[in-house]
């Protein structure tokens, strides 16, 4: 089982904060985006079009990154912490 997390503005787009998926074999983030598109097509498109940042187990990743059972994948909008 993998855990997917959505932060800030992406929670409304995905219509959830977190979800769990069972995967039989390792898959790429790109392949994962197809699964996400089944329930949240706009979110899936944003991942494929690289409009969001991605982390796997809290390290920055890309659509080519391969994810394995037990991984935590997070989708992150551009950061805005601190102040100008």
């Amino acid at each position: 089982m993998i855990t997917l997390k959505y932060f800030a503005s992406l929670k409304a787009i995905a219509d959830k904060e977190e979800e769990h998926l069972d995967i039989e074999n390792p898959i790429t983030i790109d392949q994962l985006s197809d699964i996400i598109s089944e329930t949240a097509p706009k979110m899936g498109a944003m991942i494929r079009e690289k409009k969001v940042l991605i982390s796997v187990n809290q390290e920055m990743a890309s659509v080519e990154t391969i994810i394995h059972d037990g991984d935590e994948v997070a989708f992150l909008p551009p950061f805005s912490g601190g102040t100008k």
Binding site: S9, A74, G81
Partner: peptide, 11 residues
């Protein structure tokens, strides 16, 4: 660097 790399968001 904090603004560039740290996952913190402002609403």
């Amino acid at each position: 660097e904090l603004k560039r790399t740290t996952p913190i968001w402002k609403r």
